[in-house]
């Protein structure tokens, strides 16, 4: 018997045991996790719902997942039924992608202590061990793009089209306005919350109203802004987008978009689940963790100095030299 070989064998065995132990948890190695997503609008809305679908697809490219998506669930009670159904069917992670679903989730999660739930955008886990929350610091990208917008505007007036003054829409708009003011103190920012997440026609007309008072740079958030982008396009006004990359809507006027990379936090949530942690944590995407990315449109001829303003702001926010809305 060769002592060296025995030692080698022993070492390999020990290493294997250690490996198994380190990954030993609720979800045995090799098991494919089942993930369900419930979202309010269509999977390809170029906005909120598309961002989470792209996020989970990015994860799927790296690890095997069994994913089910129920999109277009704007009826809150239907979403609640879907959440309960997925949990009852044994899905490991149920993601309620809409802040309006939180009230229902809070009640349902109690009944399924072994299921991991995540919901957003929010920073409230209800103190439950199996619920995590996730949010987007969309005010950061808003701030960056607000600064660029102010620098870009020749008329000194900027228009913002919002849905209802809540959640990440409010954060983005507030950040954008703050950024514009920081760049140019006397800039005029007209904010119009149209009161709907779905009325494309009203969003378009709101954009027209902005153009009529002389705004030459526009931005907006939520899925109904596709109408506003169209109007901006006909009048050659510059557009800043958020949530997803909206360049395809109007390549000639989209300057830049703040894109949500939910995969950053989805990866963390899944890693925590691998460790047996089902929830109780708050996650957020930000410029610093690359969950928020400002994607510039190469086709738009953005003056170099304006782009520099944006890049500098990104760096400053990442390094914590600028804190937005605090």
């Amino acid at each position: 018997m060769n002592p060296v070989r025995t030692l080698k064998k022993a070492l390999i065995a020990a290493a294997t045991v250690a490996l198994c132990l380190s990954s030993g948890n609720l979800f045995a190695a090799g098991k494919v996790l089942k993930v369900a997503i419930i979202a309010p609008s269509a999977s390809n809305d170029l906005a909120f719902t598309q961002s989470i679908v792209e996020g989970i697809n990015a994860i799927k490219a790296e690890r095997e997942l069994d994913v089910a998506i129920t999109d277009g669930t704007f009826v809150v009670e239907d979403a609640a039924a879907a959440i309960r159904d997925y949990a009852a069917k044994g899905y490991d992670l149920v993601i309620a992608h809409g802040s309006q679903y939180g009230g229902s989730l809070k009640e349902i999660a109690k009944d399924f202590p072994k299921t991991a739930f995540a919901w957003g955008t929010s920073a409230d886990t209800f103190g439950m061990p199996n619920v995590s929350s996730y949010e987007a610091h969309s005010e950061e990208g808003g701030y960056v793009m607000g600064m660029m917008a102010a620098a870009l505007s020749k008329s000194g007036s900027i228009g913002v089209v919002g849905p209802i003054e809540v959640g990440d829409a409010k954060l983005y708009v507030d950040g954008f306005v703050a950024g514009a003011k920081a760049q140019k103190a006397d800039i005029k920012t007209n904010v119009n919350y149209i009161g709907s997440f779905s009325d494309v026609a009203l969003a378009a007309e709101a954009a027209r109203a902005h153009l009529a008072v002389g705004s030459d740079v526009l931005t907006g958030t939520a899925q109904m802004v596709v109408g506003a982008v169209g109007v901006a396009k006909t009048k050659k006004a510059a557009w800043f987008g958020t949530q997803a990359n909206q360049t395809v809507l109007a390549p000639e006027i989209v300057v830049a978009c703040q894109v949500y990379k939910w995969e950053v936090i989805l990866k963390q949530i899944l890693a925590d689940m691998d460790q047996g942690v089902l929830g109780g944590k708050k996650y957020a995407i930000s410029l610093a963790n690359n969950g928020l990315v400002i994607e510039f449109n190469d086709k738009y001829e953005l003056p170099a100095d304006v782009k520099t303003i944006g890049m500098d702001a990104i760096t400053a926010i990442k390094e914590g030299k600028i804190t937005v809305l605090k």
């Binding site: 704007f74 809150v76 009670e77 609640a80 959440i83 309006q100 009230g103 349902i108 849905p163 709907s196």
Partner: peptide, 21 residues
């Protein structure tokens, strides 16, 4: 609909459909 809902609260998404289905 409100008192039998999962959430036991009233919530709006800005439209009536979101509540009434």
């Amino acid at each position: 609909l409100v008192f039998g809902s999962e959430s036991h609260r009233m919530v709006t998404d800005g439209s009536s459909t979101g509540f009434t289905g």
